[in-house]
Simulated assay, not measured.
Amino acid sequence: MDVLIISGGVHTSEMKNKTVANWIERQAESVEVMATVCTGVFLLANAVQSLSCKVTTHWEDIPELRRLFGQLDVLEGVRWVDEGGIVSSGGISAGIDMSLHLVSRLHSDKLAEKTARQMEFTWTKNV
């Protein structure tokens, strides 16, 4: 697997699921890019305790992410953050922007723009 995208949602009970955490940890050792949408970053940080990079999440969850995972540099006011092997996004629509960024990064801007157009989606790039 080249890219793993961990979706968000209500994450608190899933963080206690050792099977999920162990699977994410194993995948993190081999995939090129681990990406998270919204609160999916909680599952990644929980599974990969050594994770220490810039990330973002949904604006409502930023204080909790900072409290639980102080080693992360949690950014506010950005749609997504690309740290090379770790890419994270804010809420759901920011996750679409992040996904288009991944298409651009892994293939081309042209394909990302074509994909956004096909979806009738206005792609918001980070500035």
Rank of each mutant, 00 (worst) to 15 (best):
W23A: 13
T36M: 01
L4F: 05
E60A: 12
E83Q: 13
V78L: 01
M34G: 05
K125Q: 15
H58W: 10
V37Y: 00
V37K: 01
C38P: 04
K18T: 08
V48E: 09
S108M: 05
N46A: 07
K110I: 06
H107V: 00
K125D: 12
D73G: 05
T115I: 09
K125T: 15
G84Q: 11
E32H: 14
S52V: 06
K16E: 15
K16T: 10
Q118N: 11
A47C: 05
R79V: 04
T39C: 02
I96F: 05
C53M: 07
V3P: 02
V10W: 15
V33W: 09
D97H: 05
H58F: 07
I24D: 03
G91T: 07
S88M: 05
V3Q: 03
V31H: 09
N126S: 14
A47G: 03
A21G: 02
V10M: 12
S7D: 02
A112Y: 10
E25P: 07
I5M: 02
S52A: 15
D97K: 03
V78E: 02
S104L: 03
Q49L: 15
A112G: 11
S52Y: 07
M98C: 00
E64Y: 08
T124M: 13
C38R: 05
S50V: 14
V74C: 09
M119H: 06
G91V: 08
A28R: 05
V33N: 06
A28H: 07
D73T: 12
D73M: 09
S7A: 06
E83M: 11
S89G: 03
N126Y: 12
I96T: 05
K110C: 05
L75R: 07
C53K: 06
V81L: 02
Q27N: 10
L100A: 00
V127I: 15
Q49H: 14
E113G: 13
G95S: 02
A112N: 11
V33Y: 13
A28M: 09
L111E: 10
T56G: 02
Q49P: 14
W123V: 10
M34F: 08
T124I: 15
T57M: 05
R117S: 14
T115R: 05
E113M: 13
V20H: 04
R26K: 13
